[in-house]
Design a protein around this nucleic acid. Structure first.
Lengths: 227, 227
DNA sequence: CGCTGCGTTGAGCTTCTTCAACGATCGTGG
DNA sequence: CCACGATCGTTGAAGAAGCTCAACGCAGCG
């Protein structure tokens, strides 16, 4: 059946037996969200967690004045909102579909039961959370210790790595969202992109960015250089 | 034996049987660190994780220019550096004893073995990591969406909650370290404390701070007010 | 065709950091 | 017991980074 197959192919559930995947399939809810649709809001009851089957989801916080900080953007195969499962507390942030997305929902109690019976599922979960923690530590470091140009350089180099080291990058999200991901606002991002372009570090064409001076970007990312 | 007893009394190992605690005691190393001593540095091999028996430990990142951002301060009974265990990667930050500290070290491989055999240990670990994740999300929110006065107000209210809602707080760490925890520098923190004091929000006496206008602090923490 | 969302640019301002100097406290060694 | 240095904290003046506000261009789409 399709759902079982999809479950078996997500990294989080790697190594589970057919039976175990069937059990998961029993408790899962298959959901569809339109672009821009809210999946849950901060403070909502943490009744379970999700896995992105297709599409893209952002997890974000909002300030009193309405400024947004994106904590994470999740794509195909990635789980989110696990925290609510293991702390039994409300969702600590908002979740929204950035595009039309298909999402599996796993209710809390049933899932905890499975964890207790499957040490390897627990290990997968631990690895996943640990990775998340590492990324957060990185984000904190960026926000607190680097200026916006440094964060942007770091991000561009990350994108390049994700695309097999290619020099030709395509932003998968609007620049306004990238700004929020980097902890700044669209105006500032725009100015810095222009500056980088004028200095020959990159070439910009809408959502396409070509890296022209990787070494200088790396210096920027390290903090050993200014724009 | 003392070590087994100490292990049994740490929250992370709550609910483990006597035998299981004995197993842990078999693999643990009892370590002592002097005030100011480094426990590990960012990039070191992640060979295991730690639990603070007594004392205080800070986990922090350093910028290129030497500015410090404290990610976390751990006290009695708290585990740290678990991420290295489950990702098998180098430590992603520095760890240093803020005071004379006694610390248990659990080597990676032996511990993973125990996890696989003890679902409830895995669950404890998952809960612990999830809590950590939540706190990080909070820190990110603060750094990105609040100004320093707001972060300080948040922190003071947190301290108050930790001390059963008392209005009389004692900083357990030097103000310079508090600055680093809040993502700023001692000068800025000092100015803001003075300002809060002048406006009658708090009263300062060295490391002792008395809350005088809790409601106004709460407004500050929410972002709905300026200094 | 006009609307709406996204991106860019400019001017002014706020917040925070930097740099520098100084004061207080505390533990240590003479 | 006092003097000294080290650490910590405070204060001032100047500067930098990024934000706010406002205006405008441009593209896609109903």
């Amino acid at each position: 059946m399709e759902i079982t197959r999809l479950i078996a192919s997500t990294p989080l559930f790697e190594g589970l037996s057919q039976d175990q995947c069937d059990e998961l399939a029993m408790i899962v809810t298959d959901q569809e969200f339109k672009k821009g649709q809210t999946i849950f809001s901060e403070g909502d009851d943490g009744v379970g967690f999700y896995v992105v089957v297709s599409g893209m989801v952002k997890i974000y916080k909002l300030s009193y004045e309405g400024k947004e900080q994106i904590l994470h953007i999740f794509g195909e195969g990635e789980p989110f909102a696990e925290v609510a499962v293991f702390t039994g507390t409300p969702y600590p942030a908002h979740a929204l579909a950035l595009e039309k997305s298909r999402i599996f929902f796993f209710p809390r109690n049933a899932f905890v039961g499975l964890i207790m019976k499957n040490p390897s599922l627990a290990m997968n979960m631990l690895a996943s959370l640990s990775l998340r923690l590492k990324r957060f530590a990185h984000l904190i470091e960026d926000l607190s210790l680097k200026e916006v140009p440094g964060r942007l350089a770091t991000h561009l180099l990350l994108l390049s790595r994700q695309q097999q080291g290619s020099e030709d990058l395509q932003l998968q999200i609007p620049k306004s969202q990238l700004a929020s991901l980097l902890g700044t606002i669209p105006e500032t991002l725009s100015r810095i992109l222009t500056k980088m372009s004028k200095q020959g570090l990159i070439e910009i064409n809408g959502a396409n960015i070509r890296i022209q001076a990787r070494d200088e970007l790396e210096e920027l990312a390290e903090g050993g250089r200014r724009l």
